[in-house]
Write a protein that binds this DNA or RNA. Structure first.
Lengths: 156, 156
DNA sequence: CCAGTGAGTAGGAAATCTGGACCCACGATA
DNA sequence: TATCGTGGGTCCAGATTTCCTACTCACTGG
């Protein structure tokens, strides 16, 4: 008797359960920029200190950040992204590009990112197999869990 | 006297202010799958109905969704993604891929997406200028707002 | 008439968020 | 020595959100 009210099993939901809370992705942004200290995070994100402490614990537990000592006496810590955390950076860059275009409308961009090739980074999501840009009309989803179709729970 | 406690101006933060609330991106996932009706959203996302109603209003206001009538009598609505909404789908796909690898560890994936090229979609974020994959070590950020550096607010 | 469906509202309890105050260890200043 | 400043937090009261269950309203189909 599977509870019929369970939501769709989905890696997007799983990922958001880890990094979808308020401030979590901004923490990752700052850490990727190299700002891993508590006070920097508080200032640059604008989050309350205790909430930030909670988020940091969660992200460390999830294996997205690590807490490092950078000074023994006095004890001082710094958060850094693990490889898994760094692999979320492309998500952030894609989101930034969307915000640049749709919210800032391409003007007064507060931050530019330069790619190693020397140009300004404009991220494009592509298909590994064919290299083509990913666009909605080229995608077809297939649910692979019994009890679920793309449109919803099946009539069991 | 700029308030020194304002957070860093950033398109990522802007974007998350619109779509970063709980369930918002899951709404977009369902809508992109073609499930734009209220009850489908409730079932597939597992969100409380009132919260969902709030999110839908917000996403419509933000120009990410539109509300369409698909039946006059009785009045029935369907939510669809606007072009701006569809352009967030690559973000979702990238997030899904991250979740597939880091949370599901590549096993028991609940959903597969096929690309128009005939292969299973594995999204890769690339640089528009050079086509290379975006990786953390190739990125350099530059703050472009007076009062801010990459590391934090400048000393005025 | 009755049951069912789609799209919500209503209301109270539970959780989360907020801004600020506070703590502790240390180093620097005076 | 006393005091200040800094880094990294914790704790608290109050406001806001979110959750959950139930209810409404309009309509359809039998």
């Amino acid at each position: 008797m599977a509870a019929t009210k369970d939501p769709r099993p989905c890696s997007i939901a799983d990922a958001l359960a880890l990094v979808g809370e308020k401030y979590s992705l901004l923490v990752l942004r700052e850490v990727c920029l190299g700002n891993g200290r508590f006070d920097q995070l508080v200032r640059n994100i604008g989050a309350p200190r205790d909430i930030l402490a909670t988020r940091l614990r969660r992200l460390v537990d999830a294996g997205i950040l690590t807490k490092r000592v950078y000074s023994e006496r006095p004890q001082r810590f710094e958060y850094r992204a693990t490889p898994a955390g760094l692999e979320l950076e492309p998500v952030l860059m894609t989101l930034k590009e969307w915000g640049d275009r749709h919210i800032r409308k391409g003007t007064d961009l507060p931050m530019a990112v330069e790619h190693g090739c020397g140009n300004e980074l404009v991220p494009v999501v592509t298909c590994r197999a064919c290299g083509g840009e990913v666009r909605h009309e080229d995608l077809t989803a297939h649910a692979q869990v019994p009890g679920w179709t793309v449109t919803g729970p099946s009539a069991a």
